[in-house]
Design a protein around this nucleic acid. Structure first.
Lengths: 185, 185
DNA sequence: CAAATCATGTAATGTGTTACATGATTCG
DNA sequence: CGAATCATGTAACACATTACATGATTTG
């Protein structure tokens, strides 16, 4: 899809500068683009030429001037169309599964160590997200349903890492036991 | 990381051509690169200049000639190092959560319809993977532990979509109920 | 006064996909 | 004989990240 609609989404709340958007993206896990400005500034230019955002340049002596972007009516319509468009399947990615695929060359101890390191990373991440979700409980001027949706999004992220944690723990437990059926009659 | 180690991994089993690798990648969900050849052929050249693979060109009159790649000793060492390297956190991605973030502009019916369409897509995918996992139960000449690892990888994929399914069903159920705390005293 | 933050952007590079191009062989 | 598969590769483009560049303001 591209970052364009995520930017339109934020602008549908309130006008923002490129720098504001950059911060929003780097703070959010679900809006996963890593707060890199190349894409943001380029996309804002594209959105502007498409007529989906308008901009007001704020010249200020003593201050660097800011470009404040606002969503336009066509922009709102485009956002709405996109939100209603057929959703795509999500996917889970990480190099770890690829590492694991070729991990049979490792000794049992090495393999368990690898899994333990992974488990620890995932555990910390899950914990972090859970805490963060509680801290962020300040709903500004959003509707109750919107708050619910954002809560569901946060819960999704947490669930993902908790599922990952359960999976790796299961695997470690299974590998610790003697291999099944190996001495089949 | 890049596709390079996945290629080395496959070659650690048996020598293969670029075309073979292309098929392997497009068949596998966990080896997620979509079987596109640009990357594969380019990477094979890079691996060759790095000395991690060797190639034998099979000229055959009447047939298109094939380049058969084999892993070298340094290639095996590099693969082993990489497998032992610090695993990275996985991430779940999909545009759907971004759509959902701005879905409060929809009517309740539109929103539920969107969620229903997503649920259906995810349900089908989970089913497909579950069936596929059962069909693929033929272990060639792999060790029992390796079979276990690959089973775990398949289970991971299935678990991901089943978790997704449970999440979207929960959300639909929650949204069907009257909003909680809305008339807080 | 040094470091962090505000605010804009460009350059280089990496990663990934689709489509194009070529030509032989095999299978229905 | 037409379509699928084998087998190689290139071109164009989309998406993403890191690093660079500039310069003012605020904060410790």
């Amino acid at each position: 899809m591209s970052i364009a609609y995520a930017i339109l989404g934020y602008l549908s709340w309130t006008p923002l500068t490129g720098y504001d958007l950059k911060k929003l993206f780097s703070e959010s896990t679900s809006m996963y683009w890593s707060g890199n400005n190349n894409q943001i500034y380029r996309t804002l230019v594209e959105l502007h030429t498409a007529g989906w955002v308008s901009l007001e340049v704020q010249h200020r002596d003593d201050h660097p001037s800011r470009k404040i972007y606002s969503i336009t009516a066509p922009g709102r319509a485009a956002l709405r169309d996109w939100v209603l468009s057929t959703p795509e399947l999500p996917y889970s990615r990480g190099t770890f599964l690829v590492q694991l695929a070729w991990a049979d060359q490792l000794s049992p101890a090495e393999l368990d160590d690898l899994l333990a390191r992974y488990e620890e990373e995932v555990r910390v991440q899950a914990l972090m997200l859970r805490e963060q979700a509680q801290r962020k409980r300040a709903a500004p001027d959003r509707t109750p349903r919107e708050v619910r949706l954002w809560d569901a999004i946060a819960a999704h992220d947490i669930g993902f890492y908790e599922q990952e944690l359960a999976w790796v723990r299961d695997l470690r437990r299974a590998l610790a036991e003697p291999s099944p059926h190996e001495d089949a009659s």
